[in-house]
Amino acid sequence: MRKYILKRVLYMLLTLFLIATITFFLMKLLPGTPYQNQDKMSASQIHMMNVQYGLNKPVWQQYLIYIFGMVHGNLGISFQFSSQPVSYLIATRIGPSLQLGIQAMIVGSILGILLGAIAAIRKNTWADTLATLLAILGMSIPNFVFAVLLQYILGFKLKLFPIALWDNFSSSILPTIALAMMPLAETARFMRTEMIDVLNSDYIMLARAKGLTQAGVVWHHALRNSLIPVITLAGPLAVNLMTGSMVVENIFSIPGIGEQFVKSITTNDYPTIMGVTMVYSLMLVVVILIVDILYGIIDPRIRLSGSEVNA
C-alpha cells in the first residue's frame, strides 16, 4: 500500500509539472499586458517595468526562471496587489475557499447519497419523483442563479442570513448551499441508478431471504455496494466546486482564492494566475488520490488486487 501511494505521489508531481508548463505557455498567449494604465505610460516606463518583472527576457528563459522558483517554493510577486508575494496572497485567501469547498462537498455528497438512496428505495413513488425533480433542477440551474435566489429570498426577504458578507459560520451557509446544489444533484442521480441496480441483485435478494428487513438490507449491503461507483464522481465534482466557487465567491463577496483568480486573469497578473492554477491543480490531484485510496477501502476487490500487484 505504501509503495502504491509513493508511486501515485510521483505521478502527481509529474502531472503538476505538466500543468505548470502548459498553463505557462497558454498564459503567454493571453492578449494584453499587465499594465492597466498602459496608454498613459511612456515606452521607457514600460521597458523599465518589463525589466523589473523579468518580462523582457525570451519566453523560454522566463519559463525556466519560473519553474526554478516554483520548485523552491517561490511563486513570484503579484503585479496587481502592491507587490505582494503570490504565496502570501494565496495563503491569506485560501482559508475561506477551502472552508466553502469542503462544506459544499460534504453537504452535497451526503444529501445527494441520501436523496438518491431514498429515490431508489421508493422507486416510482412521489418521493422518487420529488428527488428526481430536485436533481434535474440542481443540474440545470447554474449555481450563480441559485446564489442570487438564495440572497433574495433567505437574505433579503426573510433576513435569515447575511446577504454578502464573510465573518462567522452563518455567513457561509448561503454560499455553501448555492455551491452544493450541483454535487448534490449529480450524486443523487448517480446514487439512484446504482442503488436500483444493487437492490435488484441476487445478493440483496438472498439477504432478504436471510431475514434482513428492508432497512437492514439497505444499511448492511446495498449502501456500500452502491457507493463504489459514486465515489468516482468525487474527482469531477471537486473540479466543479473549484470553478463554481470562483463565481459564487464573487457574488457573496467572499475574500477567497476564486475571486482572486478571476481578478488576476482580467488583469494579466501572470504570477497570480500561475500560482492559483497550481494550487487548484494540487487540490485536484490530492482529491483524486484520496478517491483512489477510498476505493480500496470500500471495495475489497480493488484493495487486494492492488496490494498483490505492488507487494
Binding site: D202, Y203, M205, A209, N225, I228, D299, R301
Partner: peptide
C-alpha cells in the same frame, strides 16, 4: 425457511 439460489457468483455480497 432458507434459500439457495442459482448463481453463486452473484449471490454473495462482494464487499463483506
Amino acid at each position: 425457511i432458507a434459500e439457495i439460489i442459482q448463481d453463486p457468483m452473484t449471490s454473495l455480497d462482494p464487499t463483506m
